[in-house]
Design a protein around this nucleic acid. Structure first.
Length: 635
RNA sequence: GCCGGCGUAGCUCAGUGGUAGAGCAGCUGAUUCGUAAUCAGCAGGUCGGUGGUUCAAUCCCACUCGCCGGCUCCA
């Protein structure tokens, strides 16, 4: 009898001609039930695959990452099966599993909307109930072309399949799809699924290609896990910075002002001030100096910098000022370069690190605007470091250390790091690009920062390190960027006088740590779900007098806390204490301070914390110093 | 920009081919209260904008602006 090896290096014997499923059943009926696929000698295969003597076998269940993928991929086939039946004449695109579910792209004869999803789900449930087996067939090119005649996208994919690779198709009921697999044994395994949305998507993500209709859905091994996931999506909605921005009165975006141009309300502006103050202090402490530049500049500057040629699609049209053309700045770098060039620089003064909260304006296509996360006018926490070649590594390392400190202070410890290389539209010679990319790579490795490669995603003048933070819905937003640039110094003919009394070209590092205040605050709001830690909260404590006769004492308390540098408000309204507490809770104020007869007599205050609820009475002095310490520690 | 959806009071949302409602917020008055909504009254909308169809449009159509989910693109 053939025997197969299991992951725990034990072996089991199976009958001649047994499949992976048979082996799973032999291990245990529970496992057989949960099994979705198998890994046979390292390769992911269907459970129907035969096993041979000496094979290494691992049973994949829906609870593993790979198992989920198989389940969702099968769900996408069920979706396509349903759509093909409901909308004859549909052209199939592709239908992969993705992070939280799956999608399938179709070119439909007509159009569908969200309201059609129910009908499609209904049909899918029918197909699931039918427990139609997923059947794998391997086809010759010719057979495949025949089977997919009329399916233009499938034929396109087929044509691109490498010669050596076998063309396989999976069928369930009368539905057939070109597919590598593996799949569940039958459609019955797709028990817990939900279609979520319909969206447009270009075939192969290219604007030149036709736009297909993409249907998104998700699937889980059990109904319970599906419910949990749907709950999570709802929770994410509650964290949405656009809703919280309104609720907490932080900002709004006004039609008449313009799309993508946020207006900061007092509380939002205060939050910004706190962040900006911290940012300035941190920069001064880290060897940076502050600079400031104007918001518009002559078109000549942008021609010299290369923006006019390489960045024009993101820039606003020139405005005429006495016959001269000016442009609203999309970046701050040329301004900082001009400051460098305002006099002769010695090698002794390098590196210079010049920082500015620089507001820039960029044209963004209307469809991409998104709350604070994607706007047309924003303030970058920008800085440019001009250094000698021998200083480059240390400077990049310093920036990496600095940014990790900043992100940590704001409570972000979950982020993704990318190294973006030369894009198609770019300036400069290959040697410099190579050198710059290498410098970034080495610095990250020296700092022990794990990263992924993002080929072709650099800026036109240089490669970059990007750090992305996720929003409530799990979408990653680029915040931090660190860019090495040999090109702008050359375009502007920058120089410093070296030890040898000759002129040398400085290297430039562009970097934004938070990215832009707008995007960063958008992420921050979602990160904390609007309940900011004490040091960031626009209103840190609200004093709630029980009755009007306690207003004097409330005033004294406010004065005492304000003297400590704390941001305090008094709720003067003639409302019940329950009401005042509720409203403060809704505003997510970190501390609610109740004062009544008892407190006034004892010189104390009853503390209710947003995070912990009723904390009981405390002496005023103790509270004041405790709060001040928390702020000091950025908690 | 593209695909699909949406736009009614400050907010959340009902509603109809015969020019509109609720709750909350707001204002006024009463209540002075102990940890998530005291009670009552009042006020508030050229139904996103423009044009068209119609005796009549918030509702139907076209265009436009904005928003939402994606795609493409980005801090």
């Amino acid at each position: 009898m053939p025997s197969v090896r299991l992951p725990d290096s034990s072996t089991i014997e199976v009958p001649e001609g047994a499949t992976a499923m048979d082996a799973a059943a032999k291990i245990g009926s529970g496992l057989a039930k949960a099994a979705v696929a198998a890994r046979l000698n390292g390769e992911l295969v269907d459970l129907a695959s035969p096993v041979a003597d000496g094979d290494a076998l691992e049973i994949i269940t829906g609870s593993s990452e790979e198992g989920l993928e198989v389940l969702r991929h099968s769900a996408s086939h069920v979706l396509a099966d349903a759509v093909m039946e409901l909308y004859p004449g549909t052209q199939l695109g592709i239908g992969p599993a993705i992070a939280d579910g799956f999608y399938y792209d179709f070119l439909l004869p007509g159009s569908i909307s969200d309201s059609d999803l129910e009908r499609i789900e209904e049909k899918m449930r029918e197909i699931v109930k039918a427990k139609a087996p997923f059947q794998r067939t391997e086809l010759s090119r010719e057979e495949a072309r025949e089977r997919f005649a009329g399916q233009r996208f499938k034929l396109e994919l087929l044509g691109e399949l490498p010669e050596g690779e076998v063309a396989s198709a999976y069928t369930d009921r009368s539905f057939i799809d070109l597919c590598r697999g593996p799949h569940l044994p039958d459609t019955g395994g797709v028990k817990a699924f939900r279609l979520l949305s319909v969206a447009g998507a270009y075939w192969r993500g290219d604007e030149q290609n036709p736009m297909l209709t993409r249907i998104y859905g998700t699937a889980f091994p059990s109904k319970k896990e599906l419910e949990t996931h749907l709950e999570r999506l709802k929770e994410a909605e509650r964290r949405d910075h656009r809703a919280l921005g309104r609720q907490l009165d932080l900002f709004h975006i006004d039609d008449e002002v313009g799309a993508g141009l946020p207006l900061w309300h007092p509380k939002g502006a205060l939050l910004r001030k706190v962040i900006e103050d911290f940012w300035r202090d941190a920069h001064l402490a880290n060897g940076y100096e502050m600079v400031m530049i104007p918001h518009i500049a002559s078109v000549d500057l942008w021609k010299t910098s290369g923006h006019w040629d390489f960045y024009q699609e993101n820039m606003y049209s020139p405005m005429d000022i006495e016959g001269q053309e000016y442009i609203v700045k999309p970046m701050n770098c040329p301004g900082h370069i001009k400051i460098f060039k305002s006099r002769t620089r010695s090698y002794r003064e390098l590196p210079v690190r010049w920082a500015e909260l620089g507001t820039v304006y960029r044209f963004e296509r209307s469809g991409v605007l998104h709350g604070l996360l994607r706007v047309r006018g924003f303030t970058q926490d920008d800085a440019h470091i001009f250094c000698r070649p021998d200083q480059l590594q240390d400077e990049i390392k310093g920036v990496i250390r600095f940014v990790l400190f900043m992100l940590k202070t704001f409570g972000f410890d979950d982020y993704e790091v990318y190294l973006s290389t030369r894009p198609e539209k770019s300036v400069g010679d290959d040697a410099h690009w190579e050198q710059a990319t290498e410098a970034l790579r080495l610095a990250m490795e020296a700092e022990g920062l794990a990263y992924e490669l993002d080929p072709g995603e650099g800026v036109f003048y240089g490669p970059k390190i990007d750090i992305k933070i996720r929003d409530a819905l799990g979408r990653a937003w680029q915040c931090t960027t660190i860019q090495v640039d040999f090109n702008l110094p050359e375009r502007f003919d920058m120089a410093y006088v070296g030890e040898d009394n000759a002129e040398h070209r400085p290297i430039m590092i562009h970097r934004a740590l938070l990215g832009s205040l707008e995007r960063f605050i958008g992420c921050l709001v979602e990160h904390y779900a609007g309940a900011f830690p004490l040091w960031l909260a626009p209103v840190q404590a609200v004093i709630l007098p029980i009755a009007d006769r306690h207003l004097d004492y409330a005033g004294q308390l406010a004065e005492r806390l304000t003297a400590e540098g704390l941001r305090v408000e008094i709720d003067y309204r003639k409302e019940s204490i329950g009401r005042k507490v509720r409203d403060a809770e809704m505003d997510k104020v970190p501390y609610m301070l109740l004062v009544g007869d008892k407190e006034e007599d004892a010189g104390s205050v009853s503390v209710r914390s947003y995070a912990e609820g009723d904390l009981g009475p405390r002496p005023v002095e103790e509270l004041a110093s405790d709060m001040a310490r928390q702020v000091e520690e950025k908690r």
